[in-house]
């Protein structure tokens, strides 16, 4: 007989010696706002749905939101994630951030950056930063989906960013950030963002952008 462990069964003895902070651990072992199982997800009536990533990339998440049309506040934020501990924990944290204190306004939610989530998680190992924190992108997709469904297409925003890798929703902003973080080659940027792992067609454009940002910030080679 195999018994299914519940999250509450997992006792932790403090974050020492663990790879992640206590907050990450807490959200990994006890994720908030989940939609468990496919059935539950099917039954859930969302106002907007967003998906980002793919199993081939190693991370994929799906996010469902319910919005109060009058106040434009996010009333519920549910999610499912395929990914490592930090992917699960960061999505859980994001879902909490946008629903706490009566719910976050859509305009503000659109502004959430991976850094904001990581701050609430206290910290993440640097190499996990860009690859596993994809929740903000899934959330933006869900909000845009809400705009579409409520005939407010004019409000659909990509945060002034252009999606370069369509599989992973990696934008020019992400590339810019990676370059500012010290990446100088395409390989470097890929290590940080996973760009082009699956969507190879974006590589030439990505390389051009890397050169552009390198010159912009660090001068000609």
């Amino acid at each position: 007989m195999t018994k299914k462990p519940t999250y509450a069964d997992v006792k932790t003895k403090g974050g020492k010696g663990w790879f992640y902070t206590d907050v990450v651990k807490e959200h990994f072992f006890k994720p908030r706002n989940l939609l468990r199982t496919e059935e539950e997800a099917k039954k859930y009536k969302a106002d907007g749905v967003g998906i980002v990533g793919s199993p081939a990339c190693g991370d994929m998440m799906k996010m469902w939101i319910k919005v109060d049309p009058k106040t434009e506040r996010i009333k519920e934020c549910k999610w499912q994630t395929f990914g490592c501990a930090s992917a699960i924990a960061s999505t859980s944290m994001l879902s909490m951030m946008v629903t706490e204190k009566g719910g976050m306004k859509l305009d503000k939610a659109l502004q959430i950056k991976p850094q904001d989530i990581v701050k609430r998680l206290v910290d993440l190992p640097p190499r996990k930063f860009h690859c596993s924190v994809l929740g903000d992108k899934a959330l933006r997709e869900a909000i845009n989906d809400y705009f579409k469904k409520t005939r407010k297409e004019h409000r659909i925003v990509k945060q002034g960013a252009k999606v370069i890798d369509k599989q992973l929703n990696v934008t020019d902003k992400d590339i810019e950030e990676a370059v500012l973080d010290g990446a100088t080659t395409f390989e470097d940027v890929q290590k940080k963002t996973k760009i082009g792992v699956h969507d190879k067609s974006c590589i030439p454009e990505a390389e051009q952008l890397i050169r552009f940002y390198r010159e912009k910030y660090f001068g000609p080679d």
């Binding site: 932790t12 990994f28 199993p55 190693g58 990914g83 490592c84 501990a85 890929q190 792992v197």
Partner: peptide
């Protein structure tokens, strides 16, 4: 359908130490 690092860390909570070939445990993201 699930990712190796997450499985590994869960097993570790039950005291089981194994390893994974997932991208998360490698130097690169592959």
């Amino acid at each position: 359908d699930i990712e190796g690092e997450a499985i590994m860390l869960y097993m570790n909570k039950y005291g089981i130490c194994a390893s994974s070939g997932s991208a998360c445990t490698s130097k690169t993201l592959d």
